[in-house]
Design a protein around this nucleic acid. Sequence first.
DNA 1: TAATGTTGCAGGGTTACGTCA
DNA 2: AATGACGTAACCCTGCAACAT
Length: 389
Amino acid sequence: MMELGLSLGDTPKPFGFMEKTHEVSRNKGLGFCMGLSIGPSVPEEVVDVHERREEEDEEEDDHDEEKQTSAANTDEAKKTSVVDCGKRSSSADPPIQLDLLPNTPVSRNQLPSFLPFPWTSDNGSSEAGSSGQMVRGFDVNKFPLVEEPEDGAALSSSPNNSAASSFQMDFCIYSSGGNKRDFESGGMGNEIEAERASSRVSDEDENGCTRKKLRLSKEQSAYLEESFKEHNTLNPKQKLALAKQLNLRPRQVEVWFQNRRARTKLKQTEVDCEYLKRCCETLTEENRRLHKELQELRALKTSNPFYMQLPATTLTMCPSCERVATTTNSNASGSGAATTTTNISDPTSTATGFSLTRPRFFPFSQNQNQQPTSSSSRDQIGKHVEKSS
DNA sequence: TAATGTTGCAGGGTTACGTCA
DNA sequence: AATGACGTAACCCTGCAACAT
């Protein structure tokens, strides 16, 4: 339980960001016990898609096997990892905006629509149509190989669109070596072999094959980004399907998602820190104001002794039902038993152990007759937390 | 049934590379 | 041309959960 502060002033202006926070706090609570909460949880649509994805994995896997035989071929995968973006205006596509807010709808038309996801129902339901789209978007068989100098030069003319993505690394993948946990048994075919091989890259310092940083193309990044918005984690089938579609190694897809999650978390942490900083500043200012009001009230009490004989209004927070009860004390001077009337006014309040006494007449307040209302009382109470200490 | 080993995965941290001002 | 900042792909390590023995 956290003690609540004593507010003698009128209702200050509400804080917009606290209003917004209430919605967020329903999902994942962090921060103050007043429901002051930050941080998005997993959006519902993400969960839905993820669950739907689980159901569709089986049939999509069959589709992938039919559609992506060339990408599964390791020889082909070694030769090229570029995607066919030439038929789409890649440079005209707007950059993908990172959306950290869970309830913010993501406009699908912000993103390049050249490819359906292998796990979406659209793609899974109509194999022919999706397959055709896929061919238009990422037909690796049509694309010139990177090794060929003239074509490769044309591809990577733009520094930002380094379409010759993974050739340098792929060049030394399949030579030798092994990794600590990559000796699992089970014949899953070429894809697993490719993934195993991709895991060995770190060990390939001999033969002059050091770790080479590879920039993904815009199309690959955009597709991965869109995929990440659908679900921020991958199961093996999703990983393989994405790798096939983008002509990347599954390890690359896996790493990209790991890094993407890390970036999201880092960004969210920054947002949270900024928010908490603003909260702290707001509370500090409110505390300062309340102290000032308290001093003024005490000064007024000493200078005008009749002032405190006015009936006072008490707001009491019911710990059980978490509602604010308005209590009118007919004898605030303390000379007799007080008769009280109670009105439950705020069904949304969550504070506990809250009680404040406020004179009906408040000479230095701006809104003298304003009572804490249901829309803002919780915020008011929340802002009074830890101020009285 | 508990203990132990294996495997896969996610997260945190780090490194190294590519890009840009 | 050199350089530092920044973004990010790739990696390493660790912990955890699921599973098998």
